[in-house]
Nucleic acid binder design. Sequence first.
DNA 1: TTACTATTTGACCAGATGGTTTAGTCATAC
DNA 2: GTATGACTAAACCATCTGGTCAAATAGTAA
Lengths: 209, 209
Amino acid sequence: MASTDKQTEQRILDAAHAVFLRRGTAGARMQEIADEAGANKALLHYYFRSKEKLAEAVFQRAARNLFPPLVRVLGSDASIEEKVRGIVDLYLETMSASPFLPGYVLSELNHHPERITRLMESLTGTPNGLSPRLFERLAAQIDERVRAGTMRPITAPEFVVNLLSLCLFPFAARPLFSAAFGWDQGGFDGFIEERRTNLVAFFMSSLKV
Amino acid sequence: MASTDKQTEQRILDAAHAVFLRRGTAGARMQEIADEAGANKALLHYYFRSKEKLAEAVFQRAARNLFPPLVRVLGSDASIEEKVRGIVDLYLETMSASPFLPGYVLSELNHHPERITRLMESLTGTPNGLSPRLFERLAAQIDERVRAGTMRPITAPEFVVNLLSLCLFPFAARPLFSAAFGWDQGGFDGFIEERRTNLVAFFMSSLKV
DNA sequence: TTACTATTTGACCAGATGGTTTAGTCATAC
DNA sequence: GTATGACTAAACCATCTGGTCAAATAGTAA
């Protein structure tokens, strides 16, 4: 129709994104994606050769949406407080817009470990699985404060794991928490909204000596 | 052969548990479950009518493994410190034994929200979706300390969400973290082992005024 | 217009999958 | 010995699913 080139491919990718996220890769059906894209099933294969290729494209896109900003913030020259606030803001904002993202990405990484290699490469830039470089700056900042006696000792991985856990888990477990605390959509949104300030306070407080 | 009644049914359930957890419900195949159970595909339908029923059974079993202990600890008369330590120990221990559990349960809850109702009922005992009762005791304990000025203000839901996030997320995101920090199996295990003490300290520290 | 390419479609296919059935084996109980 | 219930093996079925193809439909340059 009116859709030329990239228009259609993008439309398909968007539809695939939506369907894969809500059904999971194995549970997603090409037909449903086609319907959601307002397109023909054959057209999906015209642009992406197979379901697997399409899934890969969606995953890469989702991962690119999720991790590079994190690496950027952690590797920056901002202070620890700024980094914490930056990451909390980043994730609570992003995930509010697409709440299925964390669960989807984690599930994919569990079921397709081979994707992790490529993912890490695209994050570090280097083909090797070198990781420490990513958190070097952060580790140095922590070390500095610990030596100065203004922060409880904590390793960089522990720092990152804790922060990401606190940011992402509530979204991955959203149906559970919503049921447990009797939240509707608004209730959950309210919780997240408050969390933008509460979480920073909680996390920074945990670092005090 | 030598296996009577429950023996076999249990064997099938175990196999289904393993397969569903590592493939996800949609990705699991009845044939694979049969193979893993050392049984016939027809036998699966002999004990459980359909894949859906089998999946339901596995989920209920997984959930019963995951949540009731939590409710028990949180509702007990133990002090806040004891509760935190209890939950950390409980989850880091349990999840080390079956690392796919958190990801599986979260994924299921996202894809089959209708199961939550039944789950909550079995947790509270009541058919109604009443939640506050579960955390009443905890809320009172927190309130008490906040009034006494020995604890930063925090709501009971926030408390629970944070604690669960810190306990469960590392397992759900284990492939990611392992790749990011260059951990092999032993590296991850070591991290979790240290976490048993670190996490309690981290969490309690975050509650200080 | 014509010719050529990119895009789009509907019909179709082969294999996989959940599920059923049939026929029969093997203990154990009666 | 025979009836019963657990179990197996294999064939079978209806449906679903990913994937293909030839034909149709723009779109565009000559």
